[in-house]
Each structure stands twice: as C-alpha cells, then as structure tokens.
C-alpha cells in the first residue's frame, strides 16, 4: 500500500501539486487521470522518487521514501517496476537481455535461472517469440509488453505505468490494460497508472484519482464515475456529444 499526504510541488513560481492526499491499495489498479498539465506526471514522478516534493509524505507500506537513507532507497527500488510512456527499453540489448537486466544487476540467481525467469516473464506477456529481437524491431505495443516483462522480472511489490497506452491503437491498448490489471491481481501488487485513456478508466479503474489544476478534484472507481456530478470531471470525460450519449445509454441500461 502506498500513502501520500499533502504533497506540494513547485517549479519556480508555478505550484504544480497543491496538497494531494491519497491511498493506493495493493491488488488494485489505481488510475491517475486529468487533463494535460494537471500534474499527473509530476505526481507519479514524486511517488516514484524521480522528483522530491517540497512538502508532504510518501510512504510505501509505512516506509517514508523521502527521508529514507540512500542505500535503503536504492534497495527499495528493487521492489519497484516502472513502465514508461515510450517503453524506455535499452537499445543496445535484445528483448531477452532487457528483461534479464534487473536480474543481472540485483539477483543472486545463476545464469540459467536468470534466463528461465526472463523467459517466463516474456511468456507472461506473450512475447517469447521476440526474445532475440532488438527493441527497434518491435511495434509500439510489443515494446510496451517487453517493458512490462522487464518491470515484473524481479517480482515487484509496486508497479507504476506512465501513460501506457499513448500511441497505441484501441485494441492494443486493451491488451496492455488487461495485462497490467491481470498482473496486479496475480501478484497482489500496488499499481498506479497515469492515463487519459477513457477505455482504461472504464476497464481497469479499480480506484481513480482525478486531478485538476494540481488538486485532487474527485476520487472513486469506474462504477461511480458514470454517476458523478463533478462538473470538471464530466467535462473531461464526456467532452463529445457521442460520449455523452454513451453515458446516458449506460445509465438507462442500469
């Protein structure tokens, strides 16, 4: 479980995060949604530790990561898996080597055990056939799957995904969403996904935070989101006439 409390983050004169408090439970897919510039990425970077907030606390199962000793923080990072917007696979390595990399760096497994584990991760994301390819030979969706395989190689407790569906077609997005959701439940990990993909919100949003202008504007799940009377959220979610009609139909069918 990850708890954040009164997170404030400022870049020069601009306050990007204005006191955000939330709890992210394990076994659930937690989504952070909001318009571009709402502070989603900065919040995710703060939670992961790539940015340090000016105020507030962030705890991973009770461990305060902001004031943690460097060595302890480095060790704790092995419990974290992250999927970046552009996958961020290492160009100089094959897909299999990418997945093996965290195992090479941090596990005490033998070479054969590391290979076996990396192949199991690739099988989990249905990418075993591409193990010898280099990242640039893969499609966007395959790169994301390879990055998920790398992220779960060490068996993380926490999984972070920064806009996992950006640049992907709706069908591939669905595959990635289901993969993230499935892994979250299978390994009982705490997953935080930063997205503005509406399909993800409806499909896998066990817990949703809506940010607007650096503040937490709404919190709930994918069932409650249809009935919300939060004006800003409704404008964000149902921005087109078609989506508004879909919402009406969904509510009537209930």
């Amino acid at each position: 479980m990850i708890e954040i409390s009164s997170i404030h983050k400022r870049f020069e004169d601009q306050e990007v995060l204005k006191g955000i408090t939330a709890t992210f439970e394990n076994g659930k897919t937690n989504l952070i949604i909001g318009k571009s510039g709402a502070g989603k990425t900065v919040l995710l970077k703060c939670i992961v530790g790539l940015e340090i907030p000016e105020e507030g606390t962030i705890t991973y199962d009770g461990r305060d990561i902001i004031h943690m000793h460097k060595k302890e923080a480095a060790k704790m990072r092995q419990e974290i898996g992250m999927l970046f917007q552009n996958a961020a696979l290492f160009d100089s390595m094959s897909v299999l080597e990418n997945v093996m990399f965290p195992l090479d760096m941090f596990s005490s497994m033998t070479y054969n055990e590391r290979i076996k584990r990396a192949r199991a991760c690739l099988e989990r994301v249905n990418l075993i056939e591409a193990q010898d390819k280099s990242p640039e030979e893969l499609s966007g969706g395959m790169q994301k799957r390879a990055a998920i395989a790398r992220a779960i190689a060490l068996g993380p407790k926490y999984l972070f995904c920064d806009e996992p569906n950006s640049g992907l077609d709706p069908q591939t997005s669905l595959i990635i969403d289901e993969l993230i959701h499935g892994i979250t439940e299978e390994y009982n990990i705490t997953t935080i996904v930063n997205t503005h993909d509406m399909n993800s919100v409806m499909n896998i949003g066990d817990h949703i935070l809506f940010l607007a202008n650096g503040e937490l504007s709404w919190e709930g799940n994918n069932k409650e989101i249809l009935n919300t009377d939060n004006k800003t959220l409704n404008e964000f979610l149902f921005s087109s006439e078609i989506l508004r009609q879909v919402k009406e139909q969904a509510l009537h069918s209930k």
Binding site: V48, L50, A74, K75, M76, R77, I80, A88, D91, F106
Partner: peptide
C-alpha cells in the same frame, strides 16, 4: 539519446 528516451530514468528507477 538515452536521457531523452528515458532509458536513464529507467535505470534510476531500478536502483542502478
């Protein structure tokens, strides 16, 4: 290029 494609961030996140 590793910096702008977030490969360095990926290393840092892993604790490298």
């Amino acid at each position: 290029t590793m910096r702008v494609t977030q490969q360095i961030d990926a290393l840092e996140i892993m604790g490298v």
